[in-house]
């Protein structure tokens, strides 16, 4: 699959996820179990992404700088929703520990 084909495919899938109820199923009853599962997809995927980026083959691996950066980002994320702040704090911890190591 070419990269552009992948982009197009994901574009279609994204549109479908946004349009599914607005265009399609507005008047259907959705089983409670399905809605509940949808609630867990977000956090589960984000956590899996972080873990995969760090530990999969070709990933960055986890050394002290990565651990410090993630810990700082988590601590910061418990206090604010501001992504910019979390990004800056996480990267700063990563750089500082990386420079010290």
């Amino acid at each position: 699959m070419s990269d552009l084909a992948a982009v197009l495919l994901v574009g279609l899938g994204t549109f479908a996820s946004r349009a599914v109820f607005i265009l399609g199923l507005a008047n259907r009853r959705i089983p409670a179990r399905v809605l509940q599962a949808l609630e867990y997809v977000g956090p589960a995927t984000l956590a899996a992404l972080v873990a995969s980026l760090l530990t999969s083959e070709g990933g960055s691996g986890i050394g002290w700088p990565e651990a410090a950066g993630l810990a700082a980002a988590v601590a910061c994320g418990l206090r604010t929703r501001n992504l910019t702040v979390i990004l800056v704090v996480g990267m700063a911890a990563y750089w500082v520990v990386g420079a010290a190591a």
Partner: peptide, 26 residues
């Protein structure tokens, strides 16, 4: 490394005060 940090920043605030099953899922 900003990529995993960004995803962490999207994940963690959503778990603050969330129902325990959400935290379990993550």
């Amino acid at each position: 490394f900003a990529v995993p940090v960004m995803f962490t920043g999207m994940l963690v605030p959503g778990l603050v005060g969330a129902a325990p099953p959400k935290v379990v899922a993550a």
